Amino acid sequence: MTEYKLVVVGAGGVGKSALTIQLIQNHFVDEYDPTIEDSYRKQVVIDGETCLLDILDTAGQEEYSAMRDQYMRTGEGFLCVFAINNTKSFEDIHHYREQIKRVKDSEDVPMVLVGNKCDLPSRTVDTKQAQDLARSYGIPFIETSAKTRQGVDDAFYTLVREIRKHKEKMSKDGKKKKKKSKTKCVIM
């Protein structure tokens, strides 16, 4: 069974824990209790493949930012979460993405942009803004509501699919490099 290491990042209060708990335990946590770091595991079937999701729910508070490099190193894919009623959390996505790329030393890291709290009427981040940002990053965008469960499975499952595509691409690139290195030079 394939294991996928997913990391949920975003500013404090955007609903990272609520999304994760909704996926794992099928219930909505409405009281806000700032996370330092929590880890969850769940076995699911995605596109006919049974897999184990190892999900790291991270601290959004700035005082825990020193811990970010460590979990970013171990993560295979990242859910970059903002709240649709919090423009600052949307603007912060850029910083999370840049930090992930720096730590992973790669421009090509599996990510999904997630606009959470889409059940709320007080939207300050337009869907088109988020779609445009995701398009500019070359990553999928999904709106979710941890409260109603809308888009929750889709967000995590899409990230797994992005990781699969990335692994497939990397193995193809690896095979191309191996083929090239088999060419021999004969000096007579």
Rank of each mutant, 00 (worst) to 15 (best):
V125S: 13
V125R: 10
V125T: 03
V125G: 14
D126L: 06
D126H: 10
D126P: 03
D126N: 14
D126Y: 10
D126C: 10
D126W: 07
D126R: 02
D126E: 09
T127Y: 11
T127H: 07
T127N: 13
T127E: 12
T127W: 12
T127P: 07
T127K: 09
T127F: 12
K128M: 08
K128Y: 10
K128P: 10
K128I: 12
K128Q: 14
K128F: 10
K128A: 12
K128W: 07
K128V: 08
K128E: 12
K128H: 12
Q129W: 13
Q129T: 12
Q129L: 11
Q129V: 12
Q129C: 08
Q129A: 14
Q129M: 11
A130L: 15
A130E: 04
A130N: 06
A130S: 04
A130D: 03
A130C: 12
A130Y: 15
A130T: 07
A130F: 15
A130G: 07
A130V: 13
Q131S: 11
Q131R: 15
Q131D: 08
Q131E: 14
Q131L: 07
Q131Y: 10
Q131V: 10
Q131W: 04
D132L: 04
D132G: 05
D132I: 03
D132Y: 02
D132P: 01
D132T: 05
D132R: 03
D132A: 07
D132C: 04
L133Q: 07
L133T: 07
L133D: 04
L133Y: 12
L133P: 03
L133S: 07
L133H: 08
L133N: 09
L133K: 07
L133F: 13
L133A: 09
A134G: 05
A134T: 02
A134R: 01
R135E: 12
R135N: 09
R135V: 04
R135I: 05
R135A: 11
R135D: 15
R135L: 09
R135T: 10
R135F: 02
R135Q: 12
S136R: 08
S136M: 11
S136Y: 04
S136V: 04
S136Q: 12
S136G: 14
Y137H: 09
Y137A: 12
Y137L: 13
Y137I: 14
Y137Q: 10
Y137R: 05
Y137T: 08
Y137N: 09
G138C: 07
I139T: 06
I139R: 01
F141D: 00
I142P: 00
T144F: 01
T144D: 01
S145W: 02
S145D: 06
S145G: 14
A146F: 00
A146Y: 00
A146S: 01
K147E: 13
R149S: 11
R149G: 13
R149V: 12
Q150V: 13
Q150L: 15
G151W: 08
G151T: 11
V152A: 06
V152T: 08
V152C: 10
V152E: 03
V152I: 15
V152L: 15
V152F: 13
V152S: 04
V152Q: 11
V152K: 04
V152G: 06
V152N: 07
D153W: 06
D153E: 14
D153R: 11
D153F: 10
D153Q: 13
D153C: 11
D153P: 07
D153T: 14
D154Q: 11
D154R: 06
D154T: 10
D154H: 09
D154Y: 05
D154P: 04
D154I: 05
D154A: 09
A155G: 04
A155M: 11
A155Y: 00
A155F: 01
A155R: 00
A155E: 00
A155P: 07
F156P: 00
F156L: 10
F156M: 07
F156Q: 00
F156D: 00
F156G: 00
F156K: 00
F156Y: 04
F156R: 00
Y157C: 15
Y157S: 13
Y157H: 11
Y157F: 11
Y157W: 08
Y157E: 15
T158M: 13
T158P: 01
T158F: 03
T158K: 04
T158D: 07
T158I: 03
T158S: 09
T158E: 07
T158V: 02
L159V: 03
L159I: 09
L159N: 00
L159T: 01
L159W: 00
L159P: 00
L159F: 00
L159E: 00
L159C: 02
L159M: 05
L159S: 00
L159D: 00
L159R: 00
V160E: 01
V160N: 02
V160M: 07
V160L: 05
V160S: 02
V160C: 04
V160D: 01
V160I: 11
V160Y: 06
R161P: 00
E162A: 04
E162G: 03
E162W: 01
E162R: 03
E162F: 01
E162S: 03
E162D: 02
R164F: 03
R164E: 11
R164N: 02
R164S: 14
K165L: 03
K165M: 06
K165T: 11
K165Y: 01
K165F: 01
K165E: 06
H166A: 05
H166I: 07
H166L: 10
H166K: 08
H166E: 06
H166R: 09
H166M: 13
H166Y: 10
H166F: 12
K167I: 01
K167M: 02
K167R: 13
K167E: 04
K167S: 05
K167N: 10
K167C: 02
K167Q: 13
E168G: 06
K169G: 14
K169M: 10
K169C: 09
K169S: 09
M170W: 09
M170F: 06
K172P: 02
D173F: 06
D173S: 03
G174S: 11
G174W: 00
K175A: 15
K175I: 04
K175C: 15
K175P: 13
K176Y: 13
K176S: 12
K176F: 03
K176A: 15
K177W: 08
K177G: 09
K177L: 08
K177R: 03
K178M: 14
K178T: 06
K178R: 05
K178V: 05
K178P: 10
K178W: 06
K178Q: 11
K178L: 14
K178S: 12
K178A: 12
K178E: 14
K178F: 09
K178D: 15
K178Y: 11
K180R: 15
S181E: 15
S181P: 06
K182I: 06
K184L: 00
K184G: 14
C185A: 15
C185L: 01
V186I: 02
V186L: 10
M188C: 02
M188G: 14
